[in-house]
Design a protein around this nucleic acid. Structure first.
Lengths: 207, 207
DNA sequence: TATAATTTTAATCAAGTGATTAAACATTTT
DNA sequence: AAAATGTTTAATCACTTGATTAAAATTATA
């Protein structure tokens, strides 16, 4: 075992992640992955049995990454307002680091919904968190309008993740480069945060 | 030529549309299309030269469908508030009829951005419409907060289309059937419309 | 009806696919 | 060092892929 490069298994996983994220399951060949990992193509089968099994490993990882940190945030003992703000910042940072995570997960799920094993539990946990109860309480107290937590979470996620789902179209149609897109997305985030907070914590509802 | 079934070319296009929308370019084989169209697989090449050319035809159609009617709405002589409301209703209806249109277009664009020929002009037109000037005017008059039209359009589109991009995940994680999803989406639309209108036409800005 | 043009078919091609094999190489254990 | 185990390789398999071909079937034209 060398200290410079990680284990072969990890190298394959890393390469597979990159290629799958870029080309999707159907667009990826096992030879693509082998080439990206710099290994003999038979090694992929040695470590992961099949392309499908390797993919499922990566897919589960990506689903995890998508909601990583979110659950902890939802259960933090901070105010609802701060929680939502932090939630959006966290999502945005995560998507900036993994711009094509959403399009990958959503597309593979569309192609083959049965693949969603590891995530279905994770997604359910989101609606069984402290956040969920805090929303209910806030509604009873009249702090926010009557709207289930799932709709609020959908608003948060949609307004952030769609930015990255439509990134190629935005860049092409508006002639932006990476820096231009980042500027656009960053500004958009401010608007979206304002919009959501205004909607939830509007004057007639607060205190 | 028969009156019952359309021309062979149209049958191929229709079949290709369905298969491509379901499986994407990489996941679709020419034999899939031939089978769906009930034709010999060589006919696809006779009419469209190649899988790539056929795909580009379908892809352009789908891009058009995505923004169909939107441009006309943007240029209608109605109030900004009504325009935005109608815009959202129109988008929602369109997505209900074509639930996997967005994931298809966005994914293929992600895979191969060069494919965006027909649409880039269309997307640009969106920001050169009457709507664009109306927004500018409304900002000057203080009717709405200072926010470029592209951000507003992004908000509208994101909040609607992401519902359908994430449809499989929503249905799976919340255990919804088609009817359940429709109910969820319809309700969500009401919230989103409220949120956006509240944000744009909030008290301190109106009249 | 005979001829030409168009449309459709079955058969086939070369290239690429996921996966397996048996042998080579490397490392650990005895 | 020798044997045993674990890792990597090149070669290859059976199959699918997009596309082409030449012939057949259909339709239009003269």
């Amino acid at each position: 075992m060398k200290c410079i490069s990680e284990s072969t298994e990890e190298r394959i996983k890393e390469a597979a992640k990159n290629v799958f994220l870029e080309k999707g399951f159907d667009g990826t060949t096992t030879r693509d992955i082998a080439k990206a990992a710099g290994i003999n193509s038979a090694l992929m089968n040695y470590y992961f049995r099949s392309k499908e099994k390797l993919f499922q490993t990566i897919f589960d990882d990506m689903c995890g990454l998508m909601f990583e940190g979110m659950l902890e945030l939802l259960n933090q003992p901070i105010s609802l307002r701060e929680k939502i703000s932090k939630l959006m910042d966290h999502q945005f940072q995560m998507m900036m680091k993994n711009p094509n995570l959403t399009i990958f997960v959503m597309n593979e799920l569309h192609r083959n919904p049965e693949r969603l094993f590891a995530t279905v539990g994770m997604a359910k946990q989101l609606t069984e968190s402290k956040f969920d109860k805090e929303i209910e309480n806030a509604i009873v107290q009249g702090t926010i309008p009557a709207i289930e937590s799932h709709h609020i979470l959908t608003m948060i996620i949609a307004n952030i993740q769609f930015l990255f789902v439509s990134k190629p179209m935005t860049m092409l149609s508006r002639g932006l480069d990476e820096a231009g897109f980042k500027a656009f997305a960053t500004r958009h985030m401010e608007y979206v945060k304002d919009m959501l907070c205004d909607y939830l914590f509007k004057p007639e509802h607060s205190t």
